[in-house]
């Protein structure tokens, strides 16, 4: 079983030259009445071009970790490094995809995708060219002039992906991006995301609570545990793509990750 190479959730996950390094990150929420340790000494790294999924039970701090990598939360200990540079706040070097899409409802699909480019000062006609390229990438060229309310959940999330990628980020960060779409659409979006990943060569860090989704997509699965949120184990998924859910090896990985989570 060469494929099931695991590594423990301590500092040995850490390759300090990686694209993303999560280095001893902890996050404590303290109020007068209680102290919640959302993350406790979390260590792992993601290599350039790698697809890594974060899975864990609810309350394991995976969303907190996602927000910390995004720069929307400040860790109480440790640091996150992107290409060696510590993360100090939100920035366009990390393209974010959210479960609730976060599309600007007053902007058309085209203008949503253009938002980050406007902020970067990308001028026309380069901006339109780039937006068109992104819409083609996610197959939404025909819907460029639609408003978000006119789109299905799956289409909204493809806009979200296009918008995140438009600014050419170093990594793509996704927090349960397909959590709100039906199973069929989710399968389709998986294929699409893998294709986009292959085409763009981006590093992807993908948060999910769906173990099958994690095994389907990722090179490595970072399995987290709750109370306090920490890395339990990192599982390398050694199956060729495209992966088939009915493949016995696929099932073994799913069972392995599930047992680690305690499901």
């Amino acid at each position: 079983m060469a494929g099931l190479s695991d590594s423990p959730g301590d500092g040995s996950n850490l390759d300090r030259n990686s694209k993303v390094v999560v280095d001893g990150v902890s996050k404590v929420y303290e109020s007068e009445r209680q102290r919640v340790e959302a993350l406790s000494d979390v260590n792992f790294s993601v290599s350039d071009g790698e697809f890594v999924c974060l899975v864990g039970p609810s309350g394991c701090g995976k969303t907190t970790l996602f927000r910390t990598i995004a720069g929307l939360e400040v860790p109480t200990g440790g640091e996150i490094r992107l290409d060696g540079e510590p993360v100090t706040g939100p920035g366009t070097d990390r393209g974010m995809v959210f479960q609730e899409y976060g599309l600007f409802p007053w902007r058309t699909v085209r203008d949503n995708v253009a938002f980050g480019l406007e902020e970067q000062g990308v001028k026309e006609p380069e901006r339109s060219r780039r937006v068109g390229e992104m819409l083609d990438l996610v197959g939404l060229g025909e819907f460029a002039d639609a408003y978000p309310k006119e789109l299905s959940g799956g289409m909204k999330q493809r806009v979200g992906i296009a918008r995140a990628l438009a600014v050419d980020p170093e990594i793509l960060l996704a927090d349960e991006p397909f959590g709100s779409v039906d199973a069929q659409t989710r399968d389709m979006l998986h294929e699409e995301l893998l294709r986009i990943w292959a085409e763009t060569g981006k590093t992807v860090l993908f948060v999910t609570h769906d173990v099958e989704e994690a095994v389907k997509l990722s090179d490595r699965v970072v399995v987290m545990a709750a109370d306090p949120g920490r890395v339990r184990e990192v599982v390398t998924v050694d199956i060729d793509r495209p992966r088939d859910r009915t493949d016995p090896a696929f099932g073994e990985y799913v069972d392995r990750v599930r047992s680690l989570i305690g499901e």
Binding site: A70, G71, L72, G89, P90, G91, T92, R94, G95, M96, F98, E100, G102, F104, F115, G116, E119, Q120, R163, V167
Partner: peptide, 11 residues
């Protein structure tokens, strides 16, 4: 959420 999205897009 929308404000955070805007921040991650460079605002």
């Amino acid at each position: 959420h929308l404000r955070e999205v805007a921040e991650t897009l460079g605002v």
